[in-house]
């Protein structure tokens, strides 16, 4: 479905099909290299698929990528995606205007979001932030246009357990406000706690879709299930 060129073509996703309803928080789990980030980029209209389609709030990302981008908030796992020589507020105001907000609206929204994610030091440049603060700022950026759809690729990767729990609670609130949220993470415990449904991706294909599997729980049965689920097809 998707070809990502490094030195050679790779089929990164194949026959992937699922949906996330408004108000639903769906977890995307899978081992490294499963295709989670590629899937996020395709749905986020950053990477055109070689086949198939992704629809965001009724907009096909392949035919109207700019329209789709205007309707979604995206967090990528790379914390470098912020301007470290600017303050958190300056970052949010900048991305707000680029996302289509007027300058006064971007300023208002930036202030409200900084407060919501617990970052309200106006003078601090982002290079002085901790990894966790950058993670929260990235999440605030995804919320700038108050999007109905959120694509969050490992938003809690750099967070300590307390901050991660705060973010997960915030995601729960955001879903409760009617947003469709797709969340990928390696922290299985937080996926269990946060999501209503889980999609497990292995080698670019969907291995499981359904209620949370309790994968974060530590029991021999769960461990065996997790191992079986994540195993590459050739080893099964």
């Amino acid at each position: 479905m998707v070809r990502v060129a490094a030195r050679e073509s790779v089929e990164a996703l194949r026959s992937v099909s699922f949906h996330v309803a408004p108000g639903e928080l769906v977890a995307l789990a899978g081992p490294n290299g499963a295709g989670k980030t590629t899937l996020m980029k395709v749905a986020g209209a950053l990477l055109p698929p070689t086949g198939g389609r992704a629809v965001v709030d009724g907009i096909d990302v392949t035919t109207d990528p700019r329209g789709a981008r205007a309707r979604l908030g995206l967090v990528l796992p790379d914390e470098r995606g912020l301007y470290w020589r600017l303050t958190g507020r300056q970052n949010l105001e900048f991305f707000g205007v680029l996302a289509g907000l007027s300058r006064p609206a971007a300023r208002r929204r930036a202030g409200a979001l900084l407060e919501r994610v617990g970052l309200d030091d106006d003078r601090k440049l982002v290079f002085g932030y901790s990894s966790g603060q950058r993670g929260r700022l990235s999440l605030a950026r995804a919320l700038l246009t108050d999007p109905k759809v959120l694509l969050l690729d490992e938003p809690t990767r750099s967070l300590d357990p307390v901050s991660a729990a705060q973010v997960v609670r915030l995601l729960g609130d955001l879903a409760a406000e009617g947003r469709a949220i797709l969340l990928s993470s390696h922290r299985l415990d937080e996926l269990d706690a946060a999501c209503q449904r889980m999609v497990v991706l292995v080698e670019g294909t969907v291995r499981y879709t359904g209620p949370p599997l309790g994968l974060g729980e530590s029991s021999p049965t769960r461990a065996a299930m997790l191992e079986a689920l994540m195993q590459p097809a050739a080893d099964r």
Partner: peptide
């Protein structure tokens, strides 16, 4: 990538 992720 974040700039390209915006509608601008």
């Amino acid at each position: 990538e974040m700039l390209l992720g915006s509608p601008t």
